[in-house]
Amino acid sequence: METLSKGQVALITGGTKGIGKAIADKLSNAGMQVVVTARTAPKENTTGQYFISADLAYPDSAERVAKEILEKYGRIDIIINNAGANLSPAGGFSALSDEHWNNNWQLNFMSAVRVNKALLPTMIEQKSGVIINISTGAAKQPIWEMTMSYSSAKAALNVYSKALANELGAKGIRVNVVSPGVVETPLMLEFIENMAKSSGITSDEAFKAVMDKVGVPMGRMAEPEEVANLVAFLVSSEAKYITGTNYSVDGGASPTT
């Protein structure tokens, strides 16, 4: 995409698998200097991507990642807060302990808050920057049996993102949210397999149960690249007047526009 600026420094958290990897590859192929974080290094070292090992559920990780990026590159242009996972056990409110709630809050909400806080002073000094917080359709359509604490953490991320966009708009920094629906990632496939085993059904039956519950008119999962395409547009110069908005990539699952 010609409107993606070559040489810009982009951070993608959770950038070694699934949606994060698709975004990292998309931006890297466009000529950006891409930094990815994850708890473990990728099996294959992607050319042009700089890896930082970090578990962003822990408070000190964001400061360490920010310091390493700024020491290496001296700037930050794009932050994609993609690190996250549904850590909720099935069963609704009675199955959720304080630890479950806290784990989801730390990984799916506070990780983004801390990363942004650590890197925003540099963006403000530059008078430019783009932040994309990756949320989920389940923040608007929570599935009580499966996503209660996860959905709550991501709903908080949505509200925080809107407030941050309002604060930073006059400073030359844009903030948007991308909310995928059911995406064919390793985590989603693992979730379906575990659901099949625990319920004594086949993987195909578990997949159908998830799709029926979510209600996807297109009848299939999204490919990670389909989410990455939207993110690439939102960080490009073509989207320079777009901020404070939440975009769904869910195959029509949202009941309203």
Rank of each mutant, 00 (worst) to 15 (best):
A112H: 06
A112D: 03
V113Y: 09
R114D: 10
R114P: 15
V115G: 08
V115P: 06
V115M: 14
K117I: 08
A118I: 06
A118C: 08
A118F: 03
T122Y: 08
T122F: 05
T122A: 09
M123K: 07
I124P: 06
K127R: 10
K127M: 11
K127Q: 15
S128A: 12
S128V: 11
S128F: 07
G129F: 04
V130E: 00
V130D: 00
I131K: 01
I132Y: 05
I132L: 11
I132T: 07
N133R: 07
I134Q: 01
S135D: 03
T136P: 03
T136F: 10
A138I: 13
A139D: 06
Q141K: 10
Q141W: 11
Q141R: 14
Q141Y: 05
P142H: 12
I143P: 09
I143N: 14
I143R: 14
M146Q: 15
Y150G: 03
S151G: 09
A153H: 02
A153L: 04
A155L: 08
A155T: 09
N158D: 03
Y160K: 01
Y160H: 08
S161T: 02
L164R: 02
L164D: 00
L164S: 02
A165E: 04
N166S: 15
G169R: 03
G169A: 09
G169W: 07
G169M: 08
A170P: 14
G172D: 07
I173V: 07
I173N: 00
